[in-house]
Each structure stands twice: as C-alpha cells, then as structure tokens.
Nucleic acid binder design. Structure first.
Lengths: 231, 231
DNA sequence: GTTTTTCTGTAGCGAGCGATACAGAAAGCG
DNA sequence: CGCTTTCTGTATCGCTCGCTACAGAAAAAC
C-alpha cells in the first residue's frame, strides 16, 4: 500500500485523512447513508465542505471508502470465522458469538453498518442500497459455501439444505443487528446466538447438549477469499 | 366507529380518504418514512398537497394513521397467532409461517412496515423511529408473555429463559423481513421459519421430528389484547 | 337566489440539502 | 525572491424538502 508518496507539492492538508474517515464512518454507522447530511459530516469530521469534497470526492465516494474501511476494521469477523474454523458449524457459532459482542461494544455505534446503513433509501440512493445488499448476499453465499463443503465431506447430513441454513444464519445475524439497535444488550444477543445454534443439523449419533462436534473435517480450512464485512 | 356523520357542509372531498391512505401506506412501506417525500405522496395518492394536509394533518400524523391501518389490516398476524393458539410454540410456529407468506405476497411491498419503515432516521424523525421501536418491543413482550405462561403451566421446561426465547423469535422475524426485502422468496423464508423452530425447547420425553406437541395447555387461550402489528 | 362552509389548485414560503466558485493561505520548486 | 501547486474558509449555487397563503369552486343552509 503506497499511502505516502515522496513529498507532495502545495499546501499540505491540515487534517488527518484517516481520522476524518473514521469520524465519517461513525456518522454513517449511527444514522445511515441518507440521514447523514454533508453538514453532519463536516461537523463531526471537523473540516469544511470544500475540504471534504477535495479529499473524498462526493458523499457517495466517501461512503464507499467508509464501507471499505468498515469491512477492514470492524465487519470482517464473519468471513474470518467461516474461513478460519475447521467446520461450518464452528465458524457460524463463532461468528454469531462475535456478532453479539461486536454489535454491542461500548464506544461505537450498535449493530452492523452493512446491515443497517442503507435501508429505506429514496430512489436517488438506490445504487448505494444495492451495493450493501450485494455485500449481504455475498456473506450468505460465503456461509452457504462452507455448509455445502461440510455436507460434501459428511460433517453435515446429506439432507441438509445448505442454502436454507445459510439464509437462516444470515437472518439471525440481521435480526441480532436490529435488536442491538433497538437496545438489546450483549447478554441478550449471546442468548439469541446460542438459541440459534440449537437449530443446527445434527448427524445421526449426535448428543444434544455439550459442545457437540460431529465433524469430519479436522484440519484448518483456509480460504483464499479475503475478509468481507457485515452480514 | 362513526365514519360518516349526518351530512357535512361545504364542498365535499373529491377523493376517497381510505384509498388515499392505502396508497400512502404503500409508499411508506416501500421507501420508509423519511425517504418518502410529500411530493411522492401527493403523486401516488393522486391529490394535491393542500388536500393532503387538510385531510391528514401533516406528514407525521399521516404516517401515524398509516401505521394504525397497517396494524389493522396487515401486521396483526403475530399478535393474533400468539393470542389464538393454545401454546406459545404453536403461536410462534404459526406466526413465523404466516410471516414467510405475508412478507413475500405479490402485489404489495415486501417485509414488514413496522420493522423497516423508520430505520436510519435523522434526529428530526427520532420520535417516529421511537414509536415503531416500541411497537417492536411490545411484540417481543407479547411473545415473552405467552412463553412464560407455558413455562408456568409446564408446557415448556422450567429452565426456559422466556425473555431470551422471545428475543430470539423477534430477531428471526426481523431477519426474515430483511431477507424478504433483499429478495428472498417465500420458500426461502419458510425454510428459515422451519429451521428457527428447531431451536424451540423440548420437554423431557419429546421426539425430534414430526409436528411434536408436548403441551400441557389444551383449551384455546384467548387474550384480551387486540392485534398488534409487526415484529 | 344569497350566505356560509369546506375543499381544490396554483404558487410560493423559509430551510436544509448536496455540491462549488472564488480568493486567499501555505507549502515546494526554480 | 517569484511561480506553481494545493488546500482552506466564506459565501453561495440550484434544488428539494415539509408546509401553507390565497383565491376560486362546490356543496349545504338560509
């Protein structure tokens, strides 16, 4: 990453670009894309409108950078969990547990930016809404792929509907994000996550309670896909 | 309900108020409260702005009427299911199944208005967002009450955490609404609903598959609470 | 008929939106 | 030192927002 070229000419920028981007992210994360105005942004970023436009282009481009940064720093836990854990079950279990924590961490907006920042958009912002929607769908596909792999390997019953199970997990994560925004605390979300995992398919000779495994795949699975934010 | 008083004086209204309200509901349902402008409304309702303000007050009051009408016609299925079915399990099962259908019915906006119409609001619309949030919380409390009753009657294990289970159901419904808005079809939502019910607590001697009952309460439960929309 | 009441359409209010023109300030380069 | 380049602050732009003043139209009341 070439962040700083040799030495730029002209008057140097008087604010820290990354800090400003972080502040913009907080605003979009809290209020959503459309409800966050340019004057909201200039106030929280501590810069004037022309500086904002010079540094980031326009509102949509700024939001694009925000989403990228969000995925890199905050929203990648789902892809990471699914990619790093040896089975889909452990990946999803971990992702749901981490979501309960991430969505309620003090000192940052609640819930997931990708899930909640571009709902209820006017037609003018349809593109933005569509891009986040596609990120959500990509995450569901990620989960689905891991599940299908475990069905193929025998770690999950052959009768498992991978698409349905993946959509179920996606729905639960979206519901957790909304509940977090509605005020649910971490313990409540963790209880939801734990309950959600009770719907996970069990192989033939599997006990109900205890951290039942029942997988066939043992070695760490490592995907080539990078982390992807949200759910 | 006194809809039509004797004979009103003055020039009669040139449009049907209920039809206009229905059109307004569609707009708010599709785009949400803030993203729906007055000119959107006047266009879809087929009336001019002064007529709208004369008939409904202002935008917020119109939305209030819309929400009431929505709850009466479309969103009451959860309260109804929970109130009419003999056990919490059957009530929730029915509500989730109906949600899968309701959220994807052709010819109407997808998902639930109460869940999705006032997310990402600017501070100016905080009151509206808060009112819908309270409706969602009230629905969770409805579910929780039914669950707690079944725990008390022995239809559910004494170890059941009624609040956690109710929040789980609420999260699943909110997730289903979002998935519907993201394009999921009815079959996908029904699969989510069915999977979600596999997390339902089982009493001691309960079989896994088949429409297992295992309740203690047999007679229809009839609550005094009226239907309440959304989830 | 005339009067009174209520609704309708035009036209426009102040405010905020996203975005910018412009001139001055602050740096490197020669 | 100029000269060029880039950023900053002021002061807007045109547009849409929610909302309404006003005059005319259409009904009941007299």
């Amino acid at each position: 990453m070439a962040t700083k070229e040799t030495k730029r000419r002209g008057r140097p920028r008087s604010f820290d670009r990354e800090t400003a981007l972080e502040q913009a992210m907080r605003s979009f994360w809290e209020q959503g894309y459309e409800a966050t105005s340019i004057s909201d942004l200039t106030r929280t970023m501590g810069i004037s409108a022309p500086s904002l436009y010079a540094a980031f282009g326009d509102k949509r481009a700024l939001f694009g950078e925000v989403v990228t940064e969000y995925g890199r720093v905050y929203g990648g836990f789902l892809s990471r969990a699914v990619a790093e854990e040896p089975t889909a079950r452990r990946g999803v279990e971990r992702a749901l547990r981490e979501a309960a924590a991430e969505y309620t961490l003090p000192g940052r907006p609640r819930g997931c930016l990708v899930i909640s920042a571009a709902l209820n958009t006017a037609p003018a912002s349809a593109e933005v809404a569509e891009s986040l929607r596609e990120m959500r769908l990509a995450n569901v596909r990620d989960i689905q792929r891991a599940i299908a792999a475990d069905v193929a390997s025998g770690a999950l019953p052959a009768t498992t509907d991978a698409a349905a199970l993946a959509h179920y997990v996606g729905a639960v994560m979206q519901g957790m994000s909304q509940q977090a925004r509605d005020g649910a605390d971490r313990a409540t979300l963790e209880a939801i996550a734990e309950l959600a995992m009770r719907a996970w398919p069990r192989t033939a000779g599997e006990k109900r309670t205890g951290g039942g495994e029942g997988e066939g795949v043992r070695e760490k699975r490592k995907k080539e896909t990078g982390p992807r934010p949200g759910a």
